[in-house]
Amino acid sequence: MAASRESTVPYEIPADGAAPVRAGIPEHGRVPKYYWLKARLVPLLEELGEGGLLPTERELALRYEVSRETVRQALRELLLEGRLRRAGRGTVVAGPKLAQPLALASYTEGVRRQGRVPGRTLIGLTRHPCPAPLAADLGTAPGEPVWHLERVLFADDERVGLESTYIAVARVPDLEADFDPDSSFYAYLRDRLGIRFGRAEERLETVLATPREALLVGTPPGLPMLLIHRRSLDTAGAPLERVRLLYRGDRFSFTVRLGE
């Protein structure tokens, strides 16, 4: 059965009328064919389990009597949602997303709490004059030396993000010699230098990765990413660091605890 992305099919609405709202099914009960297929693939993913190999596009097209373009569109959405991931030449069921808290805690601590193994790969640790727009955030004068630490973030050997940290050389003069780039930067500041974080300001937005970022993180350039801009202060209220954190939108979600 040939089908285009725009064709629609009826979708059976349960008697209570509530489930279609939660599932994204409009009241008239008709959905694009790729969405109809996507809804039917979800139970298959649950049956296969994490790491399970998905049948080929051809096999899925024959099984559900749809076109291969309909299959591709359904798989694209499941990939973007993080339910599937590419593995070699095939597609497998992805594990649950990492739920990172929006709090003053290191990436290492957040990943370990979820039973995953954190890791980092150093892209670069450079020292250069501080540009004027960054000086106020770091509590230093324009032109004073600052460190730029850039690392790829891993969880269980899977690339999940990119971390870019700026900090004044005056705060951590021996960073290049003393710091293990595979370890937690927060732990280094706390345990080696006695510097503790007091509070931070964060801004979260969605972006598309640049070609360079997509190459480093190992994702297609069109994959939505979660970007966090963070400015941290120490317990005395002095500026400490400016961080740019880029996370894969298909592998991360964020949590925050609210109170009165």
Rank of each mutant, 00 (worst) to 15 (best):
R5F: 09
E6I: 12
S7W: 08
T8R: 15
P10D: 13
Y11L: 11
Y11H: 13
E12P: 01
E12H: 13
E12W: 05
P14H: 11
P14W: 05
G17N: 06
A19S: 11
G24M: 03
E27D: 12
H28W: 14
H28I: 00
R30F: 12
P32T: 03
R40M: 09
E47S: 14
L48I: 01
G52C: 05
L54P: 10
T56E: 15
R58E: 15
A61E: 12
L62Y: 09
E65M: 07
V66F: 10
S67K: 11
V71A: 12
V71K: 08
Q73G: 04
L75E: 05
L79T: 03
G82Q: 07
G82D: 06
R83G: 06
R83I: 00
L84R: 08
A87F: 10
A87I: 00
R89F: 12
V93H: 09
G95H: 09
P96G: 07
A99Q: 14
A105N: 11
Y107R: 05
T108V: 13
T108M: 14
T108C: 13
E109A: 15
E109H: 13
G110S: 15
V111S: 12
R112G: 02
R112T: 08
R113A: 15
G115C: 07
G115H: 06
R116M: 13
H128Y: 11
P129I: 01
P129H: 07
A132C: 01
P133E: 14
A136V: 00
D137T: 01
G139V: 01
P142G: 06
E144F: 04
V146H: 05
W147L: 02
W147G: 02
H148V: 02
R151Y: 02
F154K: 10
D157A: 15
G161F: 03
G161S: 06
E163Y: 09
S164Y: 01
A170M: 01
D174L: 07
L175F: 00
E176A: 12
D180G: 09
D182V: 00
S184N: 05
L189S: 05
R190H: 11
R190D: 15
R190A: 15
D191W: 04
F197S: 12
E202M: 09
E205Q: 14
E205R: 15
V207Y: 10
P211H: 09
R212S: 14
E213N: 03
E213C: 03
E213I: 00
L215A: 15
L215K: 04
L216N: 03
T219Y: 11
P221I: 01
H229I: 00
H229C: 03
H229E: 14
R230L: 03
S232I: 03
D234W: 07
T235D: 13
A236H: 13
A236F: 06
A236T: 11
A238K: 13
L240Q: 02
R244K: 10
L245M: 09
Y247K: 11
D250A: 08
D250K: 13
R251H: 11
S253A: 14
S253I: 03
V256Y: 12
R257W: 02
L258I: 08
L258T: 12
